[in-house]
Design a protein around this nucleic acid. Sequence first.
DNA 1: TGACAGTGTTACCGATCGGTACGTACCCTG
DNA 2: CAGGGTACGTACCGATCGGTAACACTGTCA
Lengths: 217, 217
Amino acid sequence: MPTKTVRTAKPAASAASEPTAPVAATAPRRAAERIRQTAGELFYREGIRAVGVEEIVHSAGVTKPSLYRSFPSKDELAAAYLRDFDAGFWRRFEAPAAEHPGDPRGHLLAYMEALARRAGRDGYRGCGLTNATIEYPDRNHPAHQVAAANKRALRERLTALCTAMGAADPAELADGLLLLLEGSYASSQTFGTGGPVRALVATATRLIDASLAAKPG
Amino acid sequence: MPTKTVRTAKPAASAASEPTAPVAATAPRRAAERIRQTAGELFYREGIRAVGVEEIVHSAGVTKPSLYRSFPSKDELAAAYLRDFDAGFWRRFEAPAAEHPGDPRGHLLAYMEALARRAGRDGYRGCGLTNATIEYPDRNHPAHQVAAANKRALRERLTALCTAMGAADPAELADGLLLLLEGSYASSQTFGTGGPVRALVATATRLIDASLAAKPG
DNA sequence: TGACAGTGTTACCGATCGGTACGTACCCTG
DNA sequence: CAGGGTACGTACCGATCGGTAACACTGTCA
């Protein structure tokens, strides 16, 4: 019984896996998973550089060696966080498609509506991937690479959607919409509710409609 | 005899102020100024958190105490850097007004054209103020406050310009344009030349024209 | 029962972080 | 020449950074 500042007694909120936990409970089960989740929350909320590994392991209720058994370095942990974020992003991005089959315009606008709602909420910190490219401008950094790959994929996806909706210049419209999205991510961190993102859907709508109406060739 | 890695012998490149420097030359003249300029370049290029004070003073050819005589802390030095950036921003933003008197639309589009040109160049790292809000999400941080103030002012200035150009809903148009600007700052760091910013002017033009044409009331 | 994978514990590493106490060379004023 | 303020450098501080070594313990599965 070490009993040096009872750490394990604190995280009462995360009681969801063990039913009343009768056993020894020294091992909180799945250290790597807890690290990944905790690091994700901290990295997103405070920024990657601002969070030390010590804070991560403490907050996750594990120890440093456990972290380094699962991740070769903090940089790679950051990259893992961004891969998780990437997966979550695509889930959010593609989710509205189900309600708008064969309607790329509706799909896109529905995503934007949800984004505008999310961006107004407390604790919104923009896109973790965009933030990472700013925190790590070095293109060789693993975190930067994961983030950049996501952005390239998003650009392609947007172009495909714009093509599908019959835009006169799909690439240009896609880039315009990408600017709006990135602008929403960034500006919603400075302005809280009532920020520029409130104009996102209206602006995108106007832009799409104007682009569809533009005569081709 | 300390002589642990001869630092002072290295910075031979910064010879630009003293003409052949016949005198003692121990003091490179105006330490505070050199610090401010060097810190500005480093902070912008690599990010504020990524740059230590040691690197700043070494790169500026001065010493740490000199830095702390002119600036109470690194955080305040960062705030000073952002105030300089703010001044530079407004210079760039208002410069095109001279060539477009009484033409807010032309003024704004000219700024965007210049921005698109700059954003394509090597070493472009977006808006230092936006980057700072991401590096320091804490609203109480001096760097965050300077940056946030700039963004609020920009939003107001854009609204004024949109009002002047007779937009049906100036606030909405201003917010849409602000999204485009912030999106340009952010995305130009991931994508080099040929990034989404190439659509900035065309998108803004389309958006402005569509907003002017919209029937009021 | 025994091997094993995964974890916690403790203690530590060198490097770097932001920041400072203190001495010194200069220049301007008397 | 004396004196004092200004500007600077040398050397150092404690704290924290990311990362590691060595060992004890626990539960699972064969």
